[in-house]
Structures are given as structure tokens and as C-alpha cells.
């Protein structure tokens, strides 16, 4: 029913060969070494950004900082922590994530449940309406025109509404519901429960795992999104923190002080390591939650890809 979690699944042909050849032992050693090297390379950008955020600006400008802080200090952290716009934007990100995820979950869960009912007349049409949007969609300009004409510019709704149904997530939930045993629902129907009762009191409580996974998928999407805000928001007090960072980056790269002006700080301070500090503060929640929720992401992906 629920697919195997690959994190705990055994290696497929790990124990097949009765004895390993010399060549295979060499291969194994090379393979492990390569994997360790790859992992270190994947981690390096994180390490160097932490090191920079904790270093003396002078040492950074001299190109002395790589994977260990030079001239350890936390001045930039204090500076960013005192910036009220940063925290306003940070709070916006939390609000957008919570509201966006809630709306998305309501729409996705109800729709997935309906299109998972094999007996439903018109089910193929409903699935088709959703799936077609994966292969053809309106495009940047018509979307922009629509959101503007709906008067959503400079409101939260431009951020939280358009992403509400992700078809991939919808199909994951659909295949989960399809693989649920129907007997319980049938028994509930015989006991006189209507569709709403079955959905609310039988199906939802049994689907906690897939619901948790979907909440995670949508939360990460809304937490990381910056482009909708970039398109539709002009007022800085509405920005999510990702847009705050993008303005810092744009300011630094085009050598203007746009980023400094936007963050209300001096250009001098900006040029050192404020970008790194802001990045660290933004990814900390993800890094803290990641080890605990990662397996849900993985099993969610598997749920959608392998028919149980």
C-alpha cells in the first residue's frame, strides 16, 4: 500500500555474490571515496558561508576566508538582528507560508479525494483539467495581467493564491487515496455516514502521513518563493525575506547601493558579509527541521512515482 522508504530499504543486490573479486573490492573502495568527496563538495558552500558570516570583514576582503572563520566576530549578526525591516520581511515569510499552505492543502486534499473515486462520473475530465496544466500553461504575461486585473497587486493574495494546486502534489495524494482500502468507507456509508462525514471522520484521520508530507512540500515552496513577490509587490513592508535577500544580492552585484538603501544600512557594512549572515538566518529553520522531515519528503516522492 504505502511504498517502501528507500532510506531503510536494503541495497538491491548487495548480498548476491558469494565472494567478491579483487577488482570489485578495489571498485568498492574507489566508489566510497568518490561518494565522500562528492558529499564534501556538496557541503562546502554551506561551510564557507558560515565561515564568512563569522569572519572579520577585512579578512574577507583580503580573500583569506575559506572553511574556517578568520578574525571571529558576530558584529554583522547583531547589525542584521537590529534591522527591523529584516524581521518584518521574515514575519511576512512565515505568514505567507502558513496561509499559502493552508489554502493549498484544502484545495489539493478535497480535489485529490474526489478524483481518486473510481466510480465518479466525469472523473476523467476532472483529472484531465488538472493534468493538462502540467504540459501547457498561460505564461508569464497573461498571468501577470490576470493577477493585476484581479486587483491582487501589493496584497498577500498574489503570493498565496496562484500556487494553490500543484498538480504533482495532487497526483501524489490521488494515488495515496486510490491505494487506501475502500472497505472502511463502505462500512461507514452503510452506517449512514454521508460523503462529507466519510471524508472528514474516516479518510482524513487515516491520511495523516500523506497530509504531513504535502504540508511539508507546500511549506518549502512558499518559504522559498521569491518570484511572485518580486513581480507583484512594490511595498517593502510586504516583502518576504527571500526578496529581501535578492535585493541585497542585486545591490552587491550591480555595485549600486540599492541593497543598502533597501535594508537601511550603510554600503560599507553591506559590502562585507551581510549577505552571508542573512542567508544563514533564512536557511536556519530549514536546516533545523530537515533531518527530521527528510524521510517524509522521500516517501512522498515515492508515493507518487511507484504504484503501490
Amino acid at each position: 500500500m504505502v511504498t517502501k522508504d528507500i532510506l531503510s530499504a536494503p541495497t538491491t543486490h548487495g548480498a548476491v555474490g558469494p565472494r567478491d573479486s579483487r577488482g570489485y573490492r578495489v571498485f568498492t573502495r574507489v566508489n566510497l571515496t568518490l561518494l565522500v568527496l562528492i558529499s564534501l563538495m556538496m557541503l562546502y558552500p554551506f561551510v564557507t558561508i558560515v565561515a564568512q558570516s563569522l569572519s572579520d570583514p577585512a579578512a574577507i576582503r583580503a580573500g583569506m576566508v575559506s572553511f574556517w572563520p578568520v578574525g571571529f566576530n558576530t558584529d554583522t549578526y547583531s547589525a542584521v538582528a537590529q534591522n527591523s525591516m529584516f524581521w518584518t520581511n521574515y514575519r511576512n515569510t512565515v505568514v505567507y507560508t502558513v496561509v499559502g499552505t493552508t489554502i493549498a492543502m484544502i484545495l489539493t486534499t478535497t480535489f485529490a479525494y474526489v478524483i481518486a473515486k473510481p466510480h465518479l462520473r466525469g472523473r476523467g475530465l476532472l483529472v484531465g483539467i488538472a493534468v493538462f496544466t502540467m504540459f501547457f500553461n498561460g505564461g508569464l504575461i497573461p498571468n501577470y495581467v490576470l493577477i493585476s486585473s484581479l486587483g491582487m497587486t501589493n496584497t498577500m493574495w498574489a503570493i498565496v493564491l496562484p500556487g494553490a494546486i500543484n498538480v504533482f502534489n495532487l497526483l501524489i495524494m490521488k494515488s495515496f487515496f486510490e491505494n487506501q482500502p475502500q472497505e472502511l468507507e463502505e462500512a461507514a456509508a452503510i452506517d449512514g455516514l454521508g460523503w462529507f462525514g466519510i471524508f472528514g471522520r474516516i479518510v482524513l484521520p487515516l491520511s495523516k502521513a500523506v497530509i504531513a508530507t504535502m504540508i511539508l512540500f507546500y511549506s518549502v515552496f512558499f518559504w522559498n518563493d521569491w518570484f511572485a513577490a518580486f513581480l507583484y509587490l512594490d511595498r517593502q513592508e510586504l516583502f518576504p525575506v527571500t526578496l529581501y535577500i535578492r535585493n541585497l544580492i542585486a545591490g552587491a552585484s550591480s555595485a549600486t547601493s540599492e541593497g543598502a538603501a533597501l535594508s537601511g544600512m550603510s554600503t560599507e557594512l553591506l559590502s562585507a558579509n551581510i549577505r552571508e549572515v542573512t542567508i544563514i538566518l533564512t536557511i536556519i529553520p530549514i536546516l533545523c527541521v530537515y533531518p527530521f522531515v527528510q524521510r517524509y519528503f522521500v516517501s512522498g516522492i515515492m508515493l507518487g512515482s511507484v504504484k503501490g
Binding site: 532510506l7 518549502v220 527571500t242 549577505r275 530537515y290
Partner: peptide, 29 residues
């Protein structure tokens, strides 16, 4: 190894761009 290699997938593209700029800056690694 899996946990480490999956991690970048969860970062905002803005943060990835910030890391790229930092690594490739004149003082970068």
C-alpha cells in the same frame, strides 16, 4: 550521503544564487 546530497534541493533559488556569487566573487574560494 543521501541526506547531504538532497539538502541543496530545499534551498530557495535566491540562496543558491547568493552562494554562487559568494564562491565566485573576487575574494571567493
Amino acid at each position: 550521503i543521501q541526506s547531504i546530497t538532497y539538502l541543496p534541493h530545499f534551498l530557495s533559488i535566491v540562496i543558491v544564487a547568493g552562494m554562487v556569487m559568494q564562491l565566485l566573487s573576487l575574494e571567493g574560494t
